[in-house]
């Protein structure tokens, strides 16, 4: 074992962890930190179920190695809820029936969140492009797009 000690922040909390150099961020989150909301659907960066936000940008956690997050800040689906209150995006996903089997949902939410953090009032085309790397097999995207649009229409763009 050639473990490396790295420091990073996940959902506002500071961590110091020993990791194997080739451990994926996805495995660090799920297996080491117990944050199993982030899902693995394809392991090749195509389905987006493992999407998390790294320093403000959506990334596939299956394609990032754990040591690459040293000194960085990660937000996972578990970090969306603040003070016991759902993020506006989460609320809108519920209201718009944008959740079916739920397996793509965490990644979809994180892509949407990253979009609204950068662009609080995206067009429909921008929304669709922002979630182009998040596959959903249940719902055909319409309700997901509607939920994101609705969240973006609120005053603060759905971002705290």
């Amino acid at each position: 074992m050639r473990a490396m000690l790295i420091e990073f922040k996940v959902n506002g909390k500071n961590y110091g962890r020993e990791v194997r150099p080739t451990m994926r961020l996805l495995d660090l989150l799920r297996d080491e930190l117990g944050l199993t909301g982030t899902k693995e659907g394809c392991a090749e960066g195509e389905c987006g179920a493992c999407t998390v936000i790294m320093d403000g940008e959506a990334v596939n956690s299956c394609l990032v190695l754990a040591p690459q997050i040293r000194g960085r800040e990660i937000i996972t689906v578990e970090g969306l809820e603040q003070g016991g209150e759902l993020d506006l995006l989460q609320q809108k996903f519920l209201e718009h029936s944008a959740v079916e089997c739920g397996f793509c949902t965490p990644g979809m939410l994180m892509s949407a969140k990253a979009l609204l953090m950068k662009n609080p009032h995206p067009s429909e085309e921008e929304i669709r492009l922002a979630i182009a790397g998040n596959l959903c097999r249940c719902a055909g995207y319409s309700k997901i797009v509607a939920a994101i649009k609705d969240a973006s229409h609120s005053a603060d763009g759905g971002c705290r």
Partner: peptide, 13 residues
Amino acid sequence: FPCDQALRKVTGD
């Protein structure tokens, strides 16, 4: 209505 476990699905729980 949201599907049955929708709340736990959006929180990743």
